[in-house]
Design a protein around this nucleic acid. Structure first.
Lengths: 246, 246
DNA sequence: GCGCAACTTTGATCAGGATCAAACAAGAAA
DNA sequence: TTTCTTGTTTGATCCTGATCAAAGTTGCGC
């Protein structure tokens, strides 16, 4: 996570990538983009925004991890998205945030004030096209996750989450996922439970079970080693061949 | 469902509404839109498209109901979307359908061949903007549904589904949802189970339980009467105040 | 009418995961 | 070092919803 470029022209992981947007942009549109862009950092645990709050910016994750979640009055919580570097946060055209966003590690966002961003979207349709594509990807991911939440067993849920985290970690470091890969779990057992619709005890038990079965290995509590990726994928109940989940 | 206009210029419920798109369209763009538009009908039970199949059109539901779902190899099924009149089906910029689409009642789609539609999107940015807004709404709905799947009890799930179906039915007939409203369940018990991540037996039992509790009444197996909407909403575990679910 | 198919309800039992509870591990502060 | 905190593991028990099974309902074709 330290190989992120902070070139103001292109922060590397920013989904509103100038390069992507600007195959047909005029140079002065690039200047504009730089002018309305700023960075914000959050410490681990800090809220970025609460559901319902007015949201005066859109942004993308540069480094760190945030969660998108909902909580019921009685305290039951469901995470509805995991925001990793290059993910987009915000709703052009909307005023209020639909969900809670919380930084789970130290977090850097690349922000754009909303109004000028919207103005620019209007002048540069390619931005809107790119945002539509990203939103469609997120929608597919959310729907894939509905299968996990609605139909998978606890063990399959854990295997699904580990597969996704492993893949995202590999792609973040621009390495192909391969046998023997290892990565750091960015979430506590409780957060994993909130993502999977389980309790933290069940998460712990199923991780132990996968370890005992030799499907994963652990170094400490957080570092996961996947000796055989196919074996882990087999535990997911499959179906989600290769589909990335946000 | 019989108050749908079939004016070729504007099919009434079509999300690519000419009126909506064309506050700033040229008249000849309207002509173009009509030129690439056609209708398709499906009988109840017929598949519209299977996951992975090439999809050469985008479309919107004019009348009837379709479901969007995924199935695992062992047969477990999760519905990931319920497509009611005015909902959009398709992925501009994508070739393959990401999920199975099946007509659950007789279904009429207003279709646009994909390539010309994409060309038109490029020339008429307002279409892309509108599609982005619709996709963001769907994404929010999918994420709200994740809370239902991950954290709600069987009874809360049923109440949530009935609330949504009631609201959608009311808005379809342009009536405000009110106490004493009634509507026809468009889904079998099994489809409801697939949507809620339950078994059909549990769905049946919970509907019976809500009936016994006086929260709903049934006329036959399919017509639901909601004597007190607030009472039903109270059974949902709440939190989803007013949010429409696709 | 009858018979059949599809859908639904209800019952009995089982099991997966939740809940309650306690102990353990590791880091931070004193 | 000790103590405190936060996160994790493990154990015992309970309960919700799944599973297996059978009977009831409705509509349709003959």
């Amino acid at each position: 996570m330290n190989d992120i470029s902070f070139n103001p022209r292109d922060c590397g992981t920013c989904p509103i990538r100038h390069r992507a947007v600007c195959s047909r942009c005029e140079p002065d549109e690039l200047e504009q983009l730089d002018a309305i862009k700023y960075y914000r950092t959050f410490e681990a645990g800090q809220p970025v925004i609460w559901s319902g709050d007015p949201m005066e910016f859109v942004s993308s994750v540069v480094s760190g991890i945030a969660t998108l979640s909902q909580t019921m009055e009685d305290g039951r919580t469901q995470m509805v998205g995991l925001l990793l570097p290059s993910d987009f946060i915000g709703r052009p055209g909307r005023d209020a945030a639909p969900f809670d966003v919380v930084a789970v590690t130290d977090l850097t966002l690349c922000c754009f004030r909303k109004k000028p961003f919207e103005d620019m979207m209007e002048k540069t349709p390619a931005i809107g096209t790119r945002l539509l594509q990203m939103t469609l990807d997120e929608l597919d991911s959310a729907r894939e996750w509905m299968l996990v939440l609605g139909r998978k067993t606890a063990r399959e849920k854990i295997a699904s989450l580990l597969t996704i985290l492993g893949r995202r970690d590999a792609s973040l470091h621009k390495r192909p996922p391969r046998d023997g890969m290892s990565f750091e779990l960015p979430l506590t057992r409780e957060s994993m439970a909130d993502y999977l619709g389980l309790t933290l005890e069940t998460v712990s038990r199923q991780i132990s079970a996968l370890k005992k079965a030799g499907v994963i290995e652990l170094q400490g509590k957080r570092r996961v080693i996947i000796p055989d990726l196919e074996a882990l994928i087999a535990e997911t109940g499959s179906d989600m061949d290769g589909a990335p989940i946000t």
